[in-house]
Structures are given as structure tokens and as C-alpha cells.
Design a binder for these strands. Sequence first.
DNA 1: CTGAAAGCGCTAACAT
DNA 2: ATGTTAGCGCTTTCAG
Lengths: 358, 358
Amino acid sequence: MKNNVTIYDIAKRLGISPSTVSRVLNNSSHPVKQEVRERVLAAAKEMDYVLNAQARNLKKQMNPTVGVILPSIANPFYPSIVRGIEDEAMRRNYYIAISSCDKDPRRTDQYVQSMLEQNMRGIIAIYLEYLPQSLANYVQRGGQVISVVTDGVLCENAHNIVVDKVLEARQAVEHLIGLGHRRIANLMNELDSQLRRKRLEGYFTALKNAGIEIKKDYLYIYGQDIPAFGDESAESVKVGYELARKMLERTPEVTGILCMNDMMALGVIKALRENGRQIPEDYSIVSFDDLFFADCIEPSLTTMRVEKYQWGKAMARYLFEILENPGAESGTAMKVQKVLTPSALVVRGSTAPPRCEN
Amino acid sequence: MKNNVTIYDIAKRLGISPSTVSRVLNNSSHPVKQEVRERVLAAAKEMDYVLNAQARNLKKQMNPTVGVILPSIANPFYPSIVRGIEDEAMRRNYYIAISSCDKDPRRTDQYVQSMLEQNMRGIIAIYLEYLPQSLANYVQRGGQVISVVTDGVLCENAHNIVVDKVLEARQAVEHLIGLGHRRIANLMNELDSQLRRKRLEGYFTALKNAGIEIKKDYLYIYGQDIPAFGDESAESVKVGYELARKMLERTPEVTGILCMNDMMALGVIKALRENGRQIPEDYSIVSFDDLFFADCIEPSLTTMRVEKYQWGKAMARYLFEILENPGAESGTAMKVQKVLTPSALVVRGSTAPPRCEN
DNA sequence: CTGAAAGCGCTAACAT
DNA sequence: ATGTTAGCGCTTTCAG
């Protein structure tokens, strides 16, 4: 980039010292005569001065950017969260660096490493699946990490916000059981994440508590190892569609269906409709996330709501609080309630009592 | 951040010079004895050396990050594009900085300014509404800008990729006309963007070409100035819902509906359904974007497809090509075809010939 | 209130 | 093949 005017240039032009220029340009508390201040400001504008953030950050040994780690920005669950973080960051003149890590250790590691190299002050990690060495380094060097996790994958010395996925899945299934369903299928993506395994556990727990026999046949798991797909946005839909078709074939006696997320539910609904089944008359469906379309499609989805935008804001606020009050406790594993609005089931049109030919 | 080991520390420890360490760590082409190389690498690992990217970037006068400017990451149209850019950037060891600018001049300006200050080498701007002074500065200083725009808002000396929104809207309306519709409503968000105004123009053109009288009554525009809403993801749905209700009241004789995007269509469908109307029997709907749900909902949406992920990749590739071949032409306003896959109408279940009581 | 100067950590031209 | 050194542009301590 050409034409970079520095504070030295401004200083020279005005016959003053660079420090004075710096003080003015930074609104430093250090006193500067009003008249000088104005001349500096005028010169800066006239000369098209642009601050060199690299130099400043190097000197100040910090970078007002927070890293955001998530599976993929193309997964519709995340953008609203990110927007929440972004808005909260901007209020404080911070920036964010978003990283779609898929569940790829190498990708994750590379991103975290770069956050470390760039001296970013904090990281917000959402459903991080793989705990990279670089993240441990990051924390150890004094970087602050807020990590939203399902119980089990805690990051040592980070601020772990623990979301009880077992409970969430249990509640979803209990809703179906409460309606009278006994034959409940569970449609899942690969079991490649802790989150999904916990949901499976919740599914089992709910059935067990209700004295319902667990049938392996009712478990539908997208079997193949699908290679990380660039555009994650539509993948789940296809998975749901295929799993539902298989379900209709193998265990049509099912009446309730648990889906891993609203995207899958979309595919499930499509498959059922194509086969002439009614929802909720023939099949009840409950899922997770409450994406924007859950309320609009027919049938509307009974789903576990997450206040995504608010989550983002809250996580960011929490991080900044820690950054500003360095004394705070760390290495904690706190319940989600402490920081975020917990999820709650939103009952809509996709669930009803089971069909009668029980 | 504590414990920052520098190349000087490594050099001292090994009794060699910092430059040698630097050369090794950068895989410089400059020759270094194999044995020394190994010792450096070993020491770096052992001492937990982390590169200081700020220092390097300052020295090298560049920052391997590209800025991405868009209305809002929470708008479901953009995440897949971003993912495409991100993937292409990562292949080249670049990072991206995403900025939700709403259509807010101040926000936009602040973001671009920061990209300038951070010495980012390039910017990809998508449907930038307001051309900030900072962007002109950016270009003038040699920054490369790829800007996807509707004709009319060209950024001087940037690489403008011009999307013909007039044409797109015209084609959408022509589809309805081709099916036999004559009373076609246009449901729009505020006319606060060039993009929307161009779509309106396309709507008019199609009608005019077909010799259909333009009725102002068939134009439904979300009237109030809605304040920039943090979480944009659901806003359009509400708008569509409200506009459709108004339409049913004011001009129920309409048979075809043009929606600004799939989100709006979602709301429109909901409103029509609540009022007992059938789609496409009573009303045909055509919209834009082809979001992931367009194919799954009932009715499936006839909509203008944009290959979002591919667009992102292509824009990034284009930018990198320019960065690597500094000789390239600039200041151009090129047709979208040159870089991106143009949009195409995907005909699905939401459109059909008009009801007969014509 | 202002200025001089050191140095953040790195790279690269130049010297050896 | 290796080392010396001069900055990149900024902040900030310290001295005036």
C-alpha cells in the first residue's frame, strides 16, 4: 500500500514531535495545548493520515479482536450467534475473526494458532469438538477462552459454559412420551460429536425413565463417514430425508420422531409427505434449534428453542467482562444458566397424540 | 500475553543470529545448513515459540486477510457465500474479516477504515449500499476491491461485478406472465436499497413488455422505516406475512405474487394458508435466492437460484488472482457472467397457471 | 506542556 | 552459509 503518511510526517510538517502527534491522535489524557491539538488534527486530515494498526498492536502487545470458533458459518444455527457477538464487540471497538473449523483437527488447530500469533485477546468457541494443543497454549499464555460445550469436553482453564444436551434431548423425548407415544425413533447424523452422543444418551434416559423398551431398530444414524462438506447448509436436510425414508421402510410402526435439528426435520417432513403421511396425525416430529423457518412451515415445528442472537451477545459480554476485570475466576465449568438463556421446548404443530391404531 | 519467546531468544540459546532463525522458521529459500535448521526447529518447539504476526505484518507491510463486507451475516443469504470465500482464502493461508454493515453508513465506514488501518490486502464487498469515503481511500492506496453490485452503485477503481437485478426480476415476472397471470403483485421491503429499486424496475419492465397495465395498487412496500434490526434472520418473514395480509384485503384479485426473497415468501405462504388460500391453485409465488429450504417446504418455491457457495469461491479466486498478478486491469465494471454463475429461475411447486375465475 | 529515545518482534539488504 | 543492522510505525517512559 502506497502513500502511508506516518505520525513522523505530520510531526515534521508541523515542526513538533511525534509523541505529541500520537497523544493528540489517541485522545490521550496527557495534556496537549488546544491550539497544537487542532493543528495536528487538521494536518492529519489534510495529509490523509491512516493509523497503522499493526504497529500500534505490536507496541501495545494486544489486538482488539476476538476469535470465534464454530463448526461452520454455513450452518444456519450459527450466523445469528455470530451477529450477537459482533454487535457486542463493535460496541467496544473490538473486531471478530470467524473460523469455520468443521470438526477438522487440522483446521481448528490452524485457526487457533493464528489467533495466538495475532495476539488476539480472547476466543469464543462454540461446540468445539476437538481441543487443539494450540488452545491449551493460548490459555496458558493468558488468553481468555469462553467455550460453550456439552458436558465432557471441557477445556482446562477456560471458562466452560456447559450445556446439558442430555437434558435437552430428554425433555424433547418426554414431550412425545407425554403425548402418548411409545414407539419413538431417533434420527441422527453421524455420531461424530459429543453433542450428538449426549443427545442419544438423553433419548435413552427418557425412554428408560418411562419404562419403554429401547429398540436398536428405532435408531437411525447416518452411517457413512461423509467427508466434510464445504457448504454445510443443506447437508442435514438430505440426511433427514434419507433417514426418514429408511425409517418408513424398516419400522413404519414408529409414531414419534426425534430429529437432531430443524434442518433434518425439513428433510424428514419432505420424505413423509412424499409417502403420503400426515404430520402430526401419522407421525409427530420434535427437533432442535428453532431456526427462523420453524414457525412458518407447514406443519410448524415443535422444537427446542435457543435464543441464538442473545446467546452471542451474552457470551461476548461475558468475555469482555473478564477481559476488563482480569481478577475473575477461571478454569471453571459453569452451568449454562449462569450466562445464557437455557433452551426451552416450543410446542407447535408437528406434535400431537399418536395415531389410534396403536 | 506472557511468555513470549522471540527469535532472539532462540538465537541466543543456540549461539546463532536471529536472521538464521528467521530463515529457518520461514522456510526461506536462503540456504541454511541442515544441521542448524534442525537445531532451530527443535529449540523453537521446545521453547514454545510463537510467531508474532503483528511484527511480521508490520515489517512486511501487509496483512494476509481479506475483508468481507455484507449487510448482515444473520441474513441467510450470506453465510454460504462467506464459507466459499473462507475456504478459498484458507487454501492460500489467508484469513477473512467479516463485517455486518447493515446499510448503516457509519458502521460501514468504521469497518472499512479498520481494514485500511490493518493493511488488509483486499476487500470483497457484497451488495454494498453506501460507498464510504474510506473505501475510496482504500482503493486509492492500492487496496484491491471486488464489489458485487447492482448496476448503478459502482465503486470507482474497484473491480465491480455487476448483477443485473432488473433482468432477474423481469425474468421472474415473465415466468408468471408466461403461465397466464395478468394481475401480479409485488411485495417488497423498504425501497432502501438499489437492489430493491432495480427489482422494482424489472417488475415494471416485464409488465410493460407484456402490455399489462401497471397498477400502483399491486405494489406492496413495507412502509415504515424499520430501524436496523440486530438479528435480521427473521425480519423478512414478518414483512412478507404482513404484506400478504394487506394484499388479501386490498387486492385479493391478484393471482401472481413476486416476493423479494425466500424469507418473505415464507411469510407470504403462512399468511395465505391462514386465510385458507391454496398455493399454487389460488396464488402463484415466485421469489429470489433459493435458500436451502426452498426445495423442502410445501409448496416448494419457484425462485431465482444463486449459487452462493460457488459465488463466494469465485469472488475470492478472482481477488487472489488480482493480488498475485498486480498488472491486471482495474476500475472495470464487468458483467456478472465474467466471474460468477448467473442466476437462473428454478421452477417448482409454488407457481402454476392462474385460477380460472379470471 | 513538549520532546528524545528506546523498543515491540520481525525481515531483508548487505556484509562477511 | 551466517551475521549485522536498519528499520516497519507506533507508544510511552523519562527528562525537561
